[in-house]
Structure formats: C-alpha cells, structure tokens
Design a protein around this nucleic acid. Sequence first.
DNA 1: GTGCATGCAAAACGTTTGCAAATCT
DNA 2: AGATTTGCAAACGTTTTGCATGCAC
Lengths: 152, 152
Amino acid sequence: MANEKQIVDALRKRGNKITPQRLLTIKVLMTLDQHHFSVEELFQAVKLQNTDVGMSTIYRTVQILEEMGFITKRNFDDGFARYELCERDEKHWHHHLICLKCGKVIEMQGDFLEALEKEIEEKKDFIIINHELKVYGYCSDCYAIMKGDKFD
Amino acid sequence: MANEKQIVDALRKRGNKITPQRLLTIKVLMTLDQHHFSVEELFQAVKLQNTDVGMSTIYRTVQILEEMGFITKRNFDDGFARYELCERDEKHWHHHLICLKCGKVIEMQGDFLEALEKEIEEKKDFIIINHELKVYGYCSDCYAIMKGDKFD
DNA sequence: GTGCATGCAAAACGTTTGCAAATCT
DNA sequence: AGATTTGCAAACGTTTTGCATGCAC
C-alpha cells in the first residue's frame, strides 16, 4: 500500500501538478475508515476539510490514481463504483464475502488460487495479471435472523 | 439451464402473465449467440421479430427473470449490465478470464474452489450461496501482439 | 372485470465533459 | 509563460418510473 510521498512523486513524474485539492484528496483517501469507498463518499469526506472542492475534481483524481495503479475499481452492485487502495505486494490478494441480505462486505486475506492459476496459464494459454473472487451468501447475523424468522 | 416451459410455468406460478412480448423475449433470450448479453442487445434481437416492443418491457422482463433466478447479472465493466442464463446445477459454476487488452471474455468450466469454500464456511461463519471468479490478464492473441510490439 | 403488462416519454442515476478562469511549476 | 487543473453546469448513457391504455386470465 503506497504512502502519500510515493503517490505525490509518481504524480510529478507523470507531469501532473500537486494542487491543494488533489493533495487533500490523497490524504483523506488514505485515512478513510470505509475501505471500499465510492467517489461520493470520498467527496463528502474531503469537503469536511475544504468546501472549495468540486465533485468532478474528485472524479478526475480518482481516475488518475486508478490509471497509476494506486487504487482499484470494485463493483459490489450497489449503484456506484467503489475503489480501494492497492496492496503493495500484488500477490497479496484478498477476496470478498458479500452478504445477499444486508450487503455487508467481509474481506478475506490470502490467495487460495495458485493451483488453479497454474492450470489456467497452461491449459488456456492466458497470462494472468490479477484476479477477483466474490463469494455471495449470508453473514452469520443475517443467517441467524433468517433462522428465527421464516425464510423468504 | 432452464427451458422455455419451465420459465413460463414459473411465471404463471408467480402470478405473472404470459404476454406475447414476454414470451418472445424468453424465446429470443435462449437462442442468443452472445452468451453475455446486455439488455440493449436482447432488445435489438427481439425487435427483429416484433417491432412493437418497448425497451422498458425488456428491462422489466429481464428484472423478473433475474429475481426468479433464471439469469444472473454480470459486470464486465463495459458500460452496461450483462446477463447470462444460469446453469441448472448450481454447483456447475464457471469462471471468466477477461483480457485486459481486447476485452474478450473466455469461460472456464469447473469448480476449483471447494476446499476454499469449506474453509470460508468454517472460519468465517458465512453461508455460501454462490461465487464468482474473474481472472484478468492477456489472451494468447493479445499477448502475441504485445510480444511483437513493444510493451506499453 | 380485475389487475398485471405495455409503450411512450420523461425522470433519475452516477459519471463525464466543455469551458473560462485560476493555479502550479 | 505555458500547460494543467479547477468548479460549475450542462451533457451523457444506461436504467427506472409515471401514466394512460391494453391485454391476459
């Protein structure tokens, strides 16, 4: 996971400028308690510290950071794109358990797909860069509620 | 994978009506050569056989079929939602290899995640209903081209 | 006849873009 | 100085909705 200095340096190297809005966006980004943030959520968090920021600036910054590989886009089917900071070690993947009832997203560390990946690269002639595993089901809370109520 | 009769029966059981538009939509749906179809694509295919169909009717039918579990929504980040017919055997899952260069989606049959699922159910206290695995990388065609050109 | 389904047009939604003014380097 | 970035508002493309009419049961 990159730190502020690394991101700023990389931006400069790319020919981008370090404006107050952009710097603040990066700072806020790294301290969000919501790990899977939407642009709207980031926008609100940034605005708490500086009212003079436009939504489109946040969109544009997020876009740049994604191109640079510092954040990744995720889709949890809740209406908007979500992003998360990338791990430094690209092999240190994590997966998502998504509750079909309450929408909660639980992260699961660890890569369990090495054998499968090997098979894919051999049999399918496909160069693997990344992967994403989503597991849908019911979290223990919702399952407990459903066992109490009648299923629907 | 359900057949037309099963879907129609299930619709009736739900109290839905079998209108010509809906029936045609289902028929066309099952003969699409595009396995991962968007609503727009389905709409165009249906319109070839009956011009008197509105886009919103297709949207509404697709929504119902998804609620009923006959089709599943997929997101390949190409701007619109895509759907595919569900397998009858819910354990007969397949995965998607997505080329980062040309966007081609290759399907891969087989479930390789049984051990992982067992672990999740035990350690994370999570009831698994379904899962989705996307593998991003380069298909052999694009990889060949990239090896010829310079990488970018 | 009742209630769900339809087509249309308009609205809604998240996201992107054009622009003139402001800002970074 | 020159090029990038900004905020605003308008545009965008997909999807949803309100509504009066039509149709299946």
